[in-house]
Simulated assay, not measured.
Amino acid sequence: MRRITLYSVGVAALGAAALAALVAWPVGRTPEPIALEGNADRGAYLARASGCIACHSNFEEGGAPLAGGAPLETRFGTFYPPNLTTDPDHGIGDWTAESFAMAVRQGIGPDGEPYYPSFPYTFYADFTDQEIADLWAAFRTVPPVAEPSPEHAVGFPFDQRWGLKLWRAVFFHDPLTEPVAGRSEEWNRGRELVRGAAHCGACHTPRNVAGGRDLGALFSGNANLPGGSKAPSIRPGELVENGWTVASLAYALQTGVTPSGDAFGGSMAEVVREGTRFLSASDREAVALYLLDDEAAAHERTADVAGEGSGDTRMD
């Protein structure tokens, strides 16, 4: 009995030590100084493409732009997009360009704590220093709103942020936005937007029990979006089967009108209203061209499943 007791105590001590080590385990890395001059117009365009305004503005409730978004109800709890205005107390007014870069590319706050993946930072990991500088210049023009965002309503064990360190180790994949040799400039631009800023896979890819994307089913649709909505498959075969062409998809990203004459509803309507309609015609066409390329899609899925670039690759 004494041996069993000592064994139990030892196991408990090791478990406690492992937990303490995990809690203390630092994630992320302080970025190099962002010394480039940003262009606010380019940054505003990228912010629209990235869904910042759509997510962090609760216009339906009369909220100010970027003062905090509508709640996202998930099976893990309810998440509240925070205030991103220049208010120093409730927004990001006291941040630096470097802390902003760390948040956007790494999903790490100024306090060193990881953000929940309801913030799709994993798709922004390849943003360049110039893009970060442009975004930062744009956000610095946002009027301050002295309104705090509600705390996330997340129960145990998901309220333990140290657990996000394990999540990141498994599911923080390189978004694979880099140009592919032999492909056209337009196709590569579409790839960059779909896999990066526009983060199409965040909604149109199913997720596992841990909330990680199932890369083997990339773009095949998701029946369990926040709030109970659904996102259809945007794989080339299904798009063509449903009557989509490059022209009609580009048009829908501008107007929200589908080939059948219907209109997007739910979160996709918001994406168009606050995001894709502001994109240039060439960018909307690039997105459509990339998504409808059936031959390339098979290769892309193979690359994702193989784990090319998986892991916390962008840390500066």
Rank of each mutant, 00 (worst) to 15 (best):
G216A: 12
N224R: 14
Y7V: 13
Y121W: 10
L193G: 03
E238K: 01
V170I: 11
A296I: 00
L218P: 09
F158W: 12
A153N: 15
D294I: 08
P179Y: 06
P259Q: 06
A288L: 11
V272K: 01
D87N: 09
R2L: 14
D126Y: 14
W167S: 02
A153Q: 14
S149Q: 09
G190W: 07
E295Q: 10
L291Q: 00
V11S: 02
S149E: 04
G15Q: 04
A153D: 15
W25R: 11
S280Q: 08
L176E: 13
T245Y: 07
Y7L: 14
Q106T: 02
I34Q: 00
D111V: 06
P26E: 10
V194R: 07
A202G: 15
W167N: 04
S50G: 13
A263H: 13
G77V: 06
G93T: 02
G51Y: 02
D134M: 00
T30D: 14
A263F: 11
L249T: 07
D159Y: 07
A133I: 00
P33R: 01
G77P: 11
Q254N: 13
A20C: 04
E113P: 07
E285G: 05
S229I: 05
E32Y: 10
A181K: 10
E147S: 13
C200N: 01
W25H: 10
N188P: 02
E285W: 05
T122P: 11
P88G: 05
D174R: 13
L46M: 04
E241H: 03
A20N: 05
S310F: 15
L218E: 12
R48F: 04
E178V: 12
R48C: 01
E238H: 02
G28F: 00
L36R: 09
G38R: 03
F119H: 07
V271Q: 07
A250H: 02
P81D: 05
A303D: 15
D214A: 11
W136V: 00
G77F: 13
V27H: 13
R168C: 08
F264V: 01
R42H: 13
V145S: 04
V142T: 06
H90W: 09
P31L: 03
R140E: 01
L22P: 04
T122A: 14
R235G: 03
A21V: 08
A181I: 02
I53F: 15
R75S: 09
G63L: 02
A198V: 12
R75K: 15
W136D: 00
W244V: 08
T74L: 14
S248H: 03
H90D: 09
Q160K: 14
A202C: 08
P144R: 10
P175M: 09
F264A: 12
S260Q: 08
S118K: 10
A263T: 11
A269K: 05
R105I: 05
A263Y: 07
